[in-house]
Write a protein that binds this DNA or RNA. Structure first.
Lengths: 350, 350
DNA sequence: TTGAAAGCGGTACCAC
DNA sequence: GTGGTACCGCTTTCAA
């Protein structure tokens, strides 16, 4: 393992000059720079980030705090973050902080306090009050993707608007019995709340407040499935349409409908939010967000704050785009129309 | 930010004593130790890992190289690794190395060379020859979960055996037309290859070599769906059973079958390998592996190698357990039996 | 049992 | 433009 002194010696210069030549800061003649770099390369010299950090205080590492790895949205954001960091030569330290676990407590208590990073990206974190306090006490910039985060930069989509437009899409198709499925079964995520609000306001605007109903469920595919089985199987006044809190729940609902012999979209329309990787396979109408891009944007925002600590927190909310596929269609009041297409709901089979 | 010197000064001892008292190595009187620790606590002292690493050479950080984040198996392993590291107070640096990407090249070329970790855990990595060489050149212990890895510790299930038993299960139910679905469409993962081999040997042992067939597909749920649509929709001699390379493919196949009006298991039996989080929802018969445990085991193995560098590479393969649910059943040659149960295949509705 | 001092591998200030 | 040197914060001999 050759160090910078080895490089310096073999290049016939001092450590300081070698350092300048390699890090690119400070005056070095073109000639010596070339020489030093050649020697460094021939030696396979790799600078010790550790040593550099010790003196500069910069770690060239970013921490990512994330509560779930196995949910589509989170995994996508993480991939986006990783790729953007990679391009900048930055490392990524992962903190998997499932809500309510001992692991999460230790992360906030011990791991984050070590400050082995220049900044933090929190994905859908929804920190408790004392957690938020701990987060700020660290004294490093924090960028949140989704989730709440006063005093930090937050980025995401306009959830209220997305759910409202999803609902409006169904209303425009003539639906009135529209249920909102998902969220609220255990921990309420603020995202889910905002989406429910958007749904409710669209219902209210259409004078359908009386018909609005919220079916709680785990925010997962099996959760959506289970909730839909209950909703569709038992209810005497079954809804003609569902707004799902996200695509996973929407897909679970579609699978449940199929199992129950309910045709999508002729008997039931379903709209989600996400544009999940399975959305096309299920011909799901949805409001598209691109979490990977949100992850990349988070890195860019963090970088900006790192370069200029004075720049305060920003709020960035993009607008989700409605993607109409075949899981939504006009309401059919007759309930007994002949089906000419043997496979309704799938016109984009992969 | 108080450093160890502050602690030392306030405790009225030297830096060295403070260091010993806090790190727990070396002789310190019980009295001074208590004193030092009290002062450290009151100051909120957090040692700089950086500075410690610089002198000890140990980073207390583990690198995880993983090609996919959005696939169930990988996410589960990662969670297992993370939780086991957390318990040991170790950080986790993530390297997302999708095969064939520029990002992956840079990871192997630049990032790993920095050695910001004491050891590496490679998940399903399947390194190319030159990548493997780079991996070994780093001179840090490497533990692989799945994937190939000569000269490194490898842990996983006996894939050949798992696929063989999946196939035998179907044969025992009377099936003969059994297709193997998945893998081989683009990059062949060695896991997938071993599973295909297991399937083939079971077919051969039963004298069914002639009937064996491999339907390639992407190893994803939509991949399995697409392959099954082709296989089940078009084929005049449709198989009565499918062995899927993993649960995601199996579930895709079940969804495809339902769309095509093919009943599972009366018209088609499907068996997978994994015991995916959706397996129960689809009543999928499968060979269970517990990737989270594999992740935890990887950490334990790495720790062993870290503590005793002399201990050579180990190979650990556990045996997958057959979980029989309702996606497999006896072959029905009459093809027109009355169905008494209106919802075949789902007796474990969630 | 404790303290003094020498680094770990770099960066950065300052004089030349 | 370049070299000397102090120092980042901690661990670790070595003496006392």
């Amino acid at each position: 393992m050759s160090g910078i002194s080895d490089v310096a010696r073999l290049a016939g210069v001092s450590k300081s000059t070698a350092s300048r030549a390699l890090s690119g800061s400070g005056y070095v003649s073109e000639k010596t720079r070339a020489k030093v770099q050649k020697v460094a390369a021939s030696l396979g010299y790799v600078p010790s980030t550790n040593a550099a950090s010790l003196v500069t205080g910069r770690t060239r590492n970013v921490g990512v705090v994330i509560p779930y790895l196995h949910r589509w949205f989170f995994a996508e954001v993480l991939e986006g973050v990783q790729s953007a960091l990679l391009e900048r030569g930055l490392d990524l330290t992962l903190y998997d902080a499932s809500p309510g676990t001992e692991a999460r407590r230790r992360i906030f208590e011990d791991f984050l306090a070590r400050k082995r990073f220049d900044g933090l990206i929190a994905v859908g974190l929804e920190p408790e009050d004392h957690e938020l306090e701990q987060l700020l006490r660290i004294g490093r910039p924090v960028v949140s993707v989704v989730g709440s985060g006063p005093a930090t930069t937050v980025i995401g989509i306009d959830d209220d608007d997305a759910a409202r437009r999803a609902t409006q899409h169904l209303i425009a198709l003539g639906h009135r019995q529209i249920a909102f499925v998902g969220g609220g079964s255990s921990r309420w995520a603020s995202v889910d709340r905002r989406r429910l609000t958007g749904y409710r306001s669209a219902m209210a605007e259409a004078g359908l407040t009386e018909l609005a109903s919220h079916i709680p469920s785990e925010v997962t595919l099996p959760g959506g499935y289970a909730a839909a089985v209950d909703l569709l199987g038992a209810s005497p006044t079954r809804p003609t349409a569902i707004v799902a809190v996200c695509d996973e729940v929407a897909i679970g609902a579609i699978i449940a409908a199929r199992r129950l012999g309910i045709r999508v979209p002729s008997d039931l329309s379903v709209v989600g939010i996400d544009d999940h990787e399975y959305a096309e396979m299920f011909a799901l109408t949805t409001l598209r967000q691109i979490p990977r891009e949100q992850g990349r944007a988070a890195v860019a925002l963090l970088e900006a704050q790192l370069d200029d600590p004075a720049s305060g927190p920003t709020q960035v909310a993009s607008t989700a785009r409605l993607i109409v596929r075949a899981s939504t269609g006009p309401v059919d009041d007759r309930h007994s129309v002949m089906q000419s297409d043997p496979r309704p709901g799938i016109d984009h089979v992969m």
